[in-house]
Each structure stands twice: as C-alpha cells, then as structure tokens.
Write a protein that binds this DNA or RNA. Structure first.
Lengths: 205, 205
DNA sequence: CTCAAAAAATGAACGGGTTCAATATTTTTT
DNA sequence: AAAAAATATTGAACCCGTTCATTTTTTGAG
C-alpha cells in the first residue's frame, strides 16, 4: 500500500490552496500571512513551502485557472460566425473582462502582474507570460478567422494588428486593476475609444 | 546662523542618493540593502528613512530624471519639420529607447514598473503613472503636429491612435526590460513590425 | 552664555516571508 | 515484524525593510 502518502499529499495540497484563495479574497493578498494560511490548512509553515515555492506561486494556481477558462470561452467565440470586426472584438474582449474577477481580486491581479514584471526569471513569471501570449495569439486568430471570411481586408497583417490590439487591451486592463474606482463599463469604454479607429481601418470597404 | 542645518541636510541627501544609485547599479536593486546604502552614505538606517520614505522612493528620483530628459528630447523632435510618419515615429521611439538605460538598469526599470502596478496608491506609483501619461501625450502631439502639416490623414483620431501606439511601445519596453538577452535593436525591430501596418493606414494617400 | 524647545539622528526591535537542521512518518527490504 | 532507507513535517532562526522611543545636535530667546 503506497497510496497513503499520495492521498495525504493531495489532501494537503487541496487544503492549502483552499485556505490561500479564501484568505487572499477575505483579507487581501498582502495581509494574508503564510502563518495564517498554514494554520487554516492545518499544516505548519514549513509544509506550506514543501507544496508551494513561495507566496507568489500560490497565486499562479488561481491565475492559471482564470485565464484557462477565459481562453476556452474565447475559442468558442472564434468558432462562431460573426459578421463584423467591431462586434467580434467587443465580444471577445467582453469575455476577457467579464471573467477577470471571477477568482481573482484586483489586488491579486496587481500582485500577479507586479511579480511577473519584477522577477522575470521565476517560473511564476514565465507561466504568466505564456498565458499572456496565448491570449494575444487568440486575438490574432480571431482576425485571421474574420479575414478568411472576407470581413477583414486582405492586406491587413493579422498578427501585427492582433498583437497591437491585445497589447492595448492588456494595458487598459492594467489601468483597470490599478484603479479600484474603475468598473468594467469604464474599462470597455476606454478600449472601445482607442480601438474603434483601428477597426474601421481594417474592415472591408 | 541657521544655515548649518540646511547645509547638512542637503549634503546628506546628496550622499544618500549617490550611495543608493551607485549600489543599485553595482550590485542590483534587490541586493542593495538599506544598511549598506546608509553605511556608504555615512548615516544610520534611521536617517535614511528621514530622507526617503522607503527603498522604492529612492528609485523615483532616478526614474524621474531619466524620463524628464527623454520628454525634453521628444519635444525638441516634435518642433522639427519631419516629412513622414514612419520616420518621425521611429525617431521619437528611438529617443525613448536610446535614453532608457542611461541612469537605470533593466532591473531598476522592472522594479519601478513592478512597484507602480503593485502599489498603485503610493506616491511612487502616482508619479510613475503621471510620467507615463506625459509620454503618451507626446506621441499624440507628434501625430497632431504631422496632421496639421498634411502628413497624417485628416480623418485619423490622433489621441486614440497616439495612445494605441504608445501603449504598444510601452508594452514592448516591458518585454525588453524583462528579458536581459534582448537588446535595443531587437526592441526597435519588434515595434517596427507591429506598428508599420498601422502607420501605413494613417499616412496620407 | 545658558537653557529650553525644536529638529534630526540613531539603532534596537518588529513583522513577515523564507530556509534548514532536526524529527517524524511512510515505504521498502530482509 | 524489525530495521533501514526514503520521504515529509516541523518550527525556530534568519534576513531585510521598516518603525519608533530615546538620545544628540542645533537653534533662538533671555
């Protein structure tokens, strides 16, 4: 019987993850001390560090979950037959933004982004960056899909434009999480404002 | 004689700033301990905190200096009479990037950005964000200047497009400072690749 | 010059993330 | 089933940024 160890491990892993996400949302990422998380999970501080490399790593589990779900929703959208760039993009971006606060608070997003920029060599940062790239790629894919159906001009470079749009969407999202006052409607309005001119230019005449 | 106090204060301020920037560049921001900075400046740890609110605040002096100089160079450029969007933009962005590592290392930039996102309510973040906005505004101004001289199409929204381009330039700069391998040429090539299609679209036909 | 008030300097102590040597538990071997 | 080996747990100790009560220095009034 060598299942005992694996069983306990899985159980503890789950309890730690649960305790951490609960506390992050309840008292905020910064105020949630490792000691508290460990206590709530019924393990010692040392054990916490056997399961997660550090506090930031705990976030990645949640960030990953959030972004994976968003990516899946996006793929579903690309499969559909949309008939103009503006609506298609609005809907894709809407899915990104609507989902963004499902598991994560603004503070958690800020921390994730902050870690990803501040410590680019960590696994955390590399995973975060990879997720970002997949999102960026998805915007490119949407454009390509629309282009193949004659909705986007043939001479538009879908990769360049997709990245351009995604970078913008992402930058606006950073402003969004930096500002507790800003709500989703404000965010969407800002993106709309900045991207509309570009979309007009790339639409079939 | 009440100049003694002010004199000493200015002197210590200078010594602390000098020690900090030296150490930040010499051993890196993270590895430079407050204790070391204080010792090199010939003051105590407590005194360090009388002069700067915290470690991150030390960075802002340097970041400010860097960005102010870049902004001045940019203004000079806008004054000149350039005759096509692509060259004008390349030159402006070139000025941004060429100057970027004059006083700051990549690690220092990363830290500044990381702090600015992670702790948006601090004076540090607010100052950083304000500098960013001025840079963004400058790109808009360049476009408007070109538009008034018939080089950019009349129907282009200079603010929307300027922000779009700046956001992209900024995001590429983030990638640049995140990656120690990446050099300035790589950075410029990436921006070129992403922005060229947009520039074509906005140029006068 | 003296002294009380104001300003500045100090470093020990604190807090919280992280490490690690010692201890405990589980698995494997015989 | 006992011993040895492998694996997991533990919490005290460490590091470093930051704070704050105490001490030192400067100033201006009498």
């Amino acid at each position: 019987m060598s299942g005992l160890r694996a069983q306990k491990k899985a159980d503890k892993n789950r309890r730690i993850l649960e305790a951490a996400t609960t506390l992050f949302r309840q008292v905020g990422y910064d105020s949630a001390r490792i000691e508290d998380i460990a206590e709530m999970a019924g393990v010692s501080v040392g054990t916490f560090y056997n399961y997660y490399k550090n506090k930031g790593d705990m976030l990645m589990a949640t960030v990953s979950m959030e972004v994976e779900e968003v990516l899946a929703a996006g793929d579903e959208l690309i499969g559909r037959e949309l008939d103009n760039v503006s609506d298609a993009l609005s809907e894709l971006i809407g899915k990104y933004y609507d989902h963004s606060l499902t598991y994560l608070s603004k503070e958690m997003w800020r921390t994730a982004m902050s870690l990803s920029i501040g410590q680019p060599e960590t696994p955390f940062s590399k995973r975060y960056t990879a997720l970002d790239h997949r999102l960026s790629k998805q915007v490119c894919d949407l454009f390509r899909s629309l282009q193949s159906r004659g909705i986007v001009r043939k001479d538009v470079d879908c990769d360049a434009t997709g990245e351009l749009v995604f970078n913008n969407v992402n930058m606006m999202f950073i402003e969004f999480v930096k500002d507790e006052e800003m709500d989703e409607a404000d965010l969407k309005a800002e993106v709309e404002r900045q991207c509309v001119p570009l979309i007009k230019l790339m639409s079939q005449v």
